[in-house]
Amino acid sequence: MIRKIGGFALCLLVLASAALAEDRGPVTNLPLPRFVSMKATEGNARRGPSLSHRIDWVYKRRGMPLEVTAEHGHWRRVRDRDGAGGWVHYSLLSGVRTVLVEQDMLQLHQRADPDSPVTAILELGVIAELGDCEMTACELTAGGYEGWAPKTALWGVKPDEIRE
Rank of each mutant, 00 (worst) to 15 (best):
7 G>T: 12
44 N>G: 11
162 I>K: 14
97 R>T: 01
138 C>S: 09
26 P>I: 05
27 V>A: 01
69 T>Q: 05
7 G>R: 15
55 I>T: 15
8 F>K: 10
97 R>H: 04
38 M>K: 03
81 R>Y: 15
134 E>M: 12
40 A>H: 05
155 W>T: 06
92 L>N: 12
139 E>R: 14
153 A>R: 00
83 G>Q: 07
104 D>E: 12
102 E>Q: 13
143 G>S: 03
130 L>E: 01
141 T>L: 09
92 L>D: 06
132 D>Y: 11
36 V>D: 02
123 E>H: 09
75 W>N: 07
32 L>Q: 00
127 I>V: 03
107 Q>F: 11
83 G>P: 08
2 I>Q: 14
88 V>D: 02
13 L>D: 13
96 V>E: 15
164 E>N: 10
101 V>I: 14
22 E>F: 09
69 T>M: 08
110 Q>A: 13
78 V>H: 00
127 I>L: 00
40 A>F: 05
149 A>T: 04
156 G>V: 12
90 Y>N: 14
47 R>C: 10
150 P>N: 09
44 N>H: 15
91 S>A: 06
111 R>S: 14
144 G>Q: 05
52 S>H: 10
102 E>D: 08
132 D>G: 08
144 G>A: 06
77 R>A: 02
20 L>A: 07
9 A>V: 15
124 L>M: 03
66 L>K: 00
156 G>W: 09
142 A>F: 02
108 L>I: 09
101 V>G: 04
141 T>D: 04
158 K>A: 14
131 G>T: 02
115 D>T: 11
135 M>E: 13
143 G>A: 06
97 R>F: 02
86 G>T: 00
